[in-house]
């Protein structure tokens, strides 16, 4: 059986790069949405406090919420990154499987 392992590894790396570069914007865009919406939310909250539409106690509670919101956002980004890594890894594995199947086909 003849497998050029260097060529296969090169193809695997390219498959991973291709998959991850497609998904990278997903991670980046998500983080940007979270950042932008946080900014808008905090500005609105500060204005509501200044306009006396909410009490200082209520304002403090909502700023406490921000810790949990950040925790959720980081968990989401972690999950999206893991999903992207999974797709990249599986793309590489698929390249290797195809190379092996092709080599097997050449023998049979």
């Amino acid at each position: 059986m003849n497998i050029d392992i260097n060529e296969v590894i090169k193809d695997m790396v390219n498959a991973m790069k291709g998959s991850f570069s497609k998904d990278w914007h997903l991670v980046k865009d998500t983080a940007e949405v979270f950042f932008t919406t946080r900014k808008e939310r905090l500005e609105s909250l500060a204005n509501s406090l200044l306009e006396k539409e909410i009490s200082p106690e209520f304002f403090l509670k909502r700023t406490e919420d921000e810790k949990k919101i950040l925790e959720s956002e980081l968990a989401a980004i972690q999950l999206i990154s893991k999903a992207a890594a999974e797709r990249a890894a599986n793309a590489a594995i698929e390249v290797f499987q195809k190379a092996v199947q092709t080599a097997l086909g050449a023998i049979i």
Partner: peptide, 18 residues
């Protein structure tokens, strides 16, 4: 109040988003 509704609207939406 208006302020409380708006604050909850935004913070709960922020919990849905992730």
């Amino acid at each position: 109040s208006n302020g409380e509704i708006k604050a909850y609207q935004q913070s709960i939406a922020a919990f849905w988003r992730p």
